[in-house]
Amino acid sequence: MEEILIAAIFLYLLSAAAYLVYFLLQRPLLPRAGLAALIGAFLLHTAYLAAAGIRLGHFPAANLRETLFCAAWAVAGAFLYVQGRYGVKVLGLYAAPLVAGVLIAGALLPGPPAQTTALFQSLWLMAHVTAVFLGEAAFALACGVGVLYLLQEKAIKTKKTRYVFRRLPSLELLDNAGYGCIVVGFALMTLGLITGLVYARAVWGRFWTWDPKEVWSGVCWLYYAALLHGRLRSGWRGRRSAWFAIAGFGILLFTFLGVNLLWEGHHRAFTR
């Protein structure tokens, strides 16, 4: 079991290295090698999670270790989607190290045996967790794309056309890809919240309990809703949209990790 995980981490690191060297040397074969390594790693990663799920008999996100494994998996999957859709190869430079880093962090954590409760076996919960993880992964990528946008925009504005300018794709493509990530992320997040509410009603008898995680998730949802509204209504795009996506990911990270560490609540168990 652990061998599969180590092999996946190794392939993610290999992929990260390929993307880094590609950025520096611009050899056309490297991003393909990076993508191939990442796909291989993703398949191993998927197998690992599936095996863990079957062994435990529930969705493997019951402690912080497992949660990080799932989060890394979601980012890798979202990256493959964005890569297929927009072809922003250089985004691998952000995604591959991020996935590898999260996975390594998770692997270093102890995995206390989670007390399996009936809580984890509902289909609603599965849908809730999957949608939330994938949505957050899409927002994580939107943040990465936003950083790339700001770098390229700065290069063009300051008329430095030698380095970053040549290595990053066009502003239009980055802006579109970032927007695409936000739309997908928002849709998944909405789905995640709805299934979460339904599940809460089934388990605790109430849709909304003012649990800190719920509150902060609501804040995130409203934040991204505002971003989309701004884009559709007043044409927020480019720089502003990129900064928004980066700041949004900050709030999201806080919701994902910070809330669990600061407050008690019914999501507490998942990061113990």
Partner: peptide, 19 residues
């Protein structure tokens, strides 16, 4: 990479607009 002024303008345009 462009070595004429007019082509440099086209290259810049591509980095802004993509296509």
């Amino acid at each position: 990479h462009a070595v004429s002024v007019s082509y440099a303008a086209v290259e810049l345009g591509r980095k802004i607009f993509g296509d």
